[in-house]
């Protein structure tokens, strides 16, 4: 029987779900392989009976916690989808502010109608089985993880830094081009897409399991960044981890 798959979103731009729809060439095959029972971006019908839950977004309001827990209780497999769900992502930038101040900056006079709390990845609330990383996710990786789940195989997500794939792509090192890059401590799997496109690594896939962050910071400083600039760069996607350290 085809597994029932559901998609959910919390605090996020829902861009990762849109990327799921971007599989185009393989969309029909995907629909043949799974039953999508819950996907707000695609259909209005909903079913509360599902096997695999893909969850986008970070948790930034108290009310999101019981909703997430309910999904966890229902799903056999929970997959975090995208940087917000996996590592907290850009939402966690506000964590260094007082929440009242953050509300005032965003909503100004209407702040009193909203509540918020420091943002966190979903695994800070419920256990997560697998991660599809990145901002946005790579559709290739989403398909890879999905196929692995269908096969009953643990998805092979790289635990080495972006440098590996960047070298495979034959890129000139960002540092040699006079820019700064988080690639040496950030988990690969993106085929170094940003660097290949002429930019640098922002760190959207999060840190590898055993990152040498101290050495990376020394290198960034050696190439001319100040401590504050280094911290700022890390915080864009990895503010949650930065505080945890």
């Amino acid at each position: 029987m085809k597994p029932k798959v559901a998609f959910f979103d919390f605090t996020s731009c829902e861009g990762c779900q849109l990327d799921v729809l971007n599989v185009e060439a393989e969309l029909l095959d995907l629909l043949a392989a799974v039953d999508i029972v819950n996907f707000r971006e695609v259909k209005t019908e909903r079913e509360e009976n599902y096997d695999i839950a893909f969850i986008e977004g970070s948790i930034s309001r108290e009310s999101e916690i019981p909703r997430l827990q309910k999904i966890r209780n229902q799903a056999k497999v929970v997959v975090a989808l995208g940087a917000c769900a996996c590592i907290g992502g850009v939402n966690c930038l506000k964590n260094s502010l007082l929440m009242a101040e953050a509300l005032r900056i965003v909503y100004q006079d209407d702040a009193r109608y909203y509540d918020t709390m420091p943002a966190r990845p979903i695994d800070a609330v419920v256990p997560v089985d697998y991660y599809v990383r990145g901002c946005p996710i790579s559709t290739e990786e989403f398909l890879k993880v999905t196929k692995s789940l269908l096969l009953g195989k643990k998805p092979e997500i790289p635990n080495y830094p972006v440098c590996v794939e960047c070298k495979m792509a034959g890129n000139v090192c960002v540092f040699e081009r006079g820019m700064f890059c988080l690639g040496p401590v950030i988990r690969a799997g993106c085929n170094a897409i940003c660097i290949t496109s002429g930019r640098y690594c922002w760190g959207c896939r999060g840190l590898v399991d055993d990152p040498n962050v101290d050495s990376e910071k020394d290198i960034l400083k050696k190439y001319g960044l100040t401590v504050d600039q280094v911290t700022e760069r890390f915080k864009i996607f990895n503010a949650y981890q930065e505080v945890a350290k």
Partner: peptide
Amino acid sequence: ETCLSCGSCVMVCPTCFCFDVK
């Protein structure tokens, strides 16, 4: 001590030939 375990050294090496199979 400062090794990033980033693999750049082995990726660019002409005498490195190790591989993984998937």
